[in-house]
Computed example of a mutant assay.
Amino acid sequence: MIAPAWQNGRIVELADARIAATAPGVLRARAVFDGCRLFVRGWGHRKRAFTISMSHHIARLQASCDALGIHLAYTSSELVDAARVVIQLMQPHYDMGLRWFVSERENQSGSVGADVTVFARSLHGYTKPRPYRLNFAKRARWVGHGIPYSVKTMSHYAASRTETLSAQQNGFDDCLFVNQFGDVAETPRANLIFVASNELHSPRPEDGILSGITCKSLRHVIGKHSTFRWCERRVSVSDLASYTGALMLSSSLGVVPIERIGPFEYLTVASRAVADLWHTAMLNPAQLFLTDIDEFDY
């Protein structure tokens, strides 16, 4: 099996893990997902993979389902076991993106359920070797209306894709969303933090962001291994000119420096210092995340 996936309790090829075109998950974007990075390390011929905060990612998946009223028939432990089966079948030799995808469907009887698919994809090339360049999204991110951005739903990501493509057509790597109040939110795939002298500033959930699990993990690393003070606060567009550094962070992306946001340019020395703290912590994460590590031997 080249690319195994777990779908509704069965093992199938990822290419065969299909969702009906008439399903509510497709027609009305009633689909949610979550995922974390699968770190792969090797000793001789033996490989070991691990995740950080898998239980938090699954809890967020369940919360997203609850927010949309999607019935998720599997428990947390069953979703972990599904991931374990996929990992054992794949036996990856490099880091992967581990994903849980839930799409609502209607049966012929009219009852509503959900297709659940668990799979892993290569992260090769996902993170660029150089600092990122962001442009401002053309559309404001409206908060306080519609589905909250704390819900990781496909409707949010599908709408963001157009903005990403527009930014790339103009020579940028991605875009940054600003809410209707002129406050910085996030990018389509990552949270943001900003370096201000001895402080790190991160936008607030109420500003229109997903509450990032990697952001929380980095905050833990910063508290243990640096003198930076972490401040969750409102960040306006006018504040961007005052920062000495900026970074993007997500489970798949990691923690990476930004060199430009629209007209604002940043020295990457300060940003790299923060990114290096994260990369160093990932060399031996068990020392920092004692209760949040799930290991998989094969």
Rank of each mutant, 00 (worst) to 15 (best):
V151R: 00
S238T: 12
V26R: 12
E199A: 10
E259L: 05
G208A: 10
R234S: 08
A159Q: 14
A275Q: 05
G35C: 01
I70N: 10
A5S: 15
A67G: 09
M282V: 05
H93S: 10
T244C: 06
S109Y: 08
R260Q: 11
E259S: 06
I293K: 02
V178P: 08
A15T: 14
H279E: 06
F50I: 11
M282P: 01
M54D: 09
L123S: 08
I213W: 07
V151P: 02
D66E: 15
H279I: 02
V26Q: 13
G262N: 05
L240I: 07
S111G: 13
A83T: 14
A15C: 12
R84Q: 14
T51Q: 14
G182N: 11
D297P: 00
M154L: 11
Y132L: 15
V255C: 04
S271N: 09
K224Q: 14
T117R: 00
A140W: 12
H225P: 03
D95Q: 06
F296N: 10
A31K: 04
P203D: 11
S197A: 13
Y266R: 03
A20K: 09
E295Q: 09
A158V: 15
T117G: 00
V178E: 13
G144T: 04
G144W: 03
T227G: 11
L134K: 08
S109I: 14
C215N: 15
S242L: 03
V116G: 02
S197R: 14
L38P: 01
I213T: 09
I222F: 00
Q108E: 05
R41G: 07
R234G: 03
V32L: 03
S122K: 02
T291E: 15
L192I: 14
E265M: 02
E199S: 10
V86Q: 07
A17D: 00
I19E: 10
S217P: 05
Q168I: 06
G35L: 01
D174G: 08
N135E: 04
M96V: 06
F296C: 11
R48S: 01
G223H: 09
T127L: 08
V256T: 01
L283T: 14
H201M: 11
N170Q: 15
E163G: 11
M90Q: 02
